[in-house]
């Protein structure tokens, strides 16, 4: 399906957030996900189904002051 991932329209095979994390190869990274403006706790990744046109923000920590 097509979702908006970090601002870009993206085709993904994943049907839920745990699959999305695996599809992107981010299992080992310290990340956080926002789905349609709501932060999703890691414990809810498996139960959070992706839907067409979902707006997903996927962030991590980088250098900054």
């Amino acid at each position: 399906m097509q979702i908006q991932l970090n601002g870009e329209n993206t085709q993904v095979a994943a049907t839920n957030l745990i699959e999305l994390v695996a599809e992107l190869g981010l299992e080992q990274r310290m990340i956080a996900i926002e789905r349609n403006m709501e932060v999703v706790p890691k414990s809810e990744y498996t139960g959070t189904q992706l839907e067409e046109s979902d707006r997903i923000e996927l962030v991590h920590m980088i250098g900054g002051g």
């Binding site: 970090n6 601002g7 992107l24 310290m30 956080a32 996927l58 991590h60 920590m61």
Partner: peptide
């Protein structure tokens, strides 16, 4: 130590991450 929060670059994630060097 301060860090910034940014989108992961999906197309070019790079092998390394700041937190591989700065241990939380």
């Amino acid at each position: 130590i301060t860090v910034a929060v940014r989108r992961v670059n999906i197309t070019d994630m790079g092998k390394e991450n700041l937190l591989d060097y700065i241990d939380p």
